[in-house]
Amino acid sequence: MSLLSIRNLEKNKGNTILFSEFSLEVNKGDIVAIKCNNEVGRQIIDMLIGQVSLSNGEIIFKDESLNTNYKKLSRSIGIALLDESFYDRLNLDQYLKFFKRLYAVETDISSLLQQTGLIEKKKIQIKNLTFSEKKRLQVARVILPEPELIIFEEPNQNVDIESKIIIQQIVSNLSKQGKAILITTNYFENAILFTDIVYSLDKEGFKRIEVRDKDDVK
């Protein structure tokens, strides 16, 4: 049984088709990437969490309508958007402990910072981090409550090489743990760094992209 089922989903903006009807199944352990423009990617995410109405179709997570029950189901879903606001005056330890209390979990903060390559920045205020370091902190925040489904919007856009490697490794490990990963990205090259399950979505439709050996991609 799929963890996430997107069935006959489409979105119109006035008389304009933002994207054509598509269906997608995401199972536990899957890493699935949708190559689409940024507007479409954000619309899909907003539709998943009920921020934008569906023009047609349904979104099912664990046998329940996700878009109409997101508040109830949100504990099981982690979302990392391209742009995120932080509590800049907190240090990394304080920031993650805030979410640890919020979710009432027993996650080891030091272990989480170690995974994301931020342990040495533990007592530094967030405002003093680089963009790439903030992106890794975002990943730490998202995986802290151990969600079953993680949704990434452009997870490696504009980050340094170290952060790309760390984020890719974390995503791979999450998949091995049985977590489902859904990625939206405007760039095919970024998608295939994470997975060989890549789809394209535009006005012309939804289709699987054949991914050759990554060593062959220039």
Rank of each mutant, 00 (worst) to 15 (best):
I143L: 09
F131V: 15
V105F: 01
E106R: 14
V105H: 05
R136V: 10
F99N: 13
E153V: 06
L113K: 05
E154V: 07
E148N: 12
R101Q: 10
L102P: 04
G117C: 09
K123P: 00
N128H: 14
I143P: 01
Q94A: 10
L92Y: 00
L118P: 03
N128V: 07
A140K: 09
K100P: 05
N128R: 13
R101D: 15
I124S: 14
E148L: 10
N156P: 05
L149M: 09
E148G: 12
F98A: 14
V142N: 03
N91S: 09
L90D: 10
L118N: 05
A140L: 12
I109H: 02
K127W: 00
N158Y: 04
G117A: 12
K122S: 13
K127R: 15
T107K: 12
L113D: 06
Q94S: 11
E154R: 04
V105P: 03
L112C: 09
E106L: 10
I126F: 01
D108V: 06
L102E: 11
D108L: 05
E146N: 15
F152H: 02
T116V: 14
L112E: 07
K135S: 11
G117Q: 09
Q138V: 04
A104L: 09
T116A: 11
L144F: 02
L113I: 10
N156L: 13
I109R: 03
Q94D: 15
S111M: 08
K127V: 12
I151T: 04
A104I: 09
Q115G: 14
K123N: 13
R89V: 07
D108N: 15
L149E: 06
Y103N: 15
D93L: 13
I119R: 05
F131C: 10
L118R: 04
N128G: 12
E133M: 15
I124N: 13
Y103L: 14
N156F: 02
E146S: 15
Q94W: 00
K135G: 07
Q138M: 11
F152R: 04
S111L: 11
L137D: 06
A140V: 14
K123Q: 08
L112Y: 01
I126L: 07
P147A: 09
I151S: 01
S110L: 13
N128S: 15
F152T: 05
N158P: 01
L129Q: 08
P155S: 11
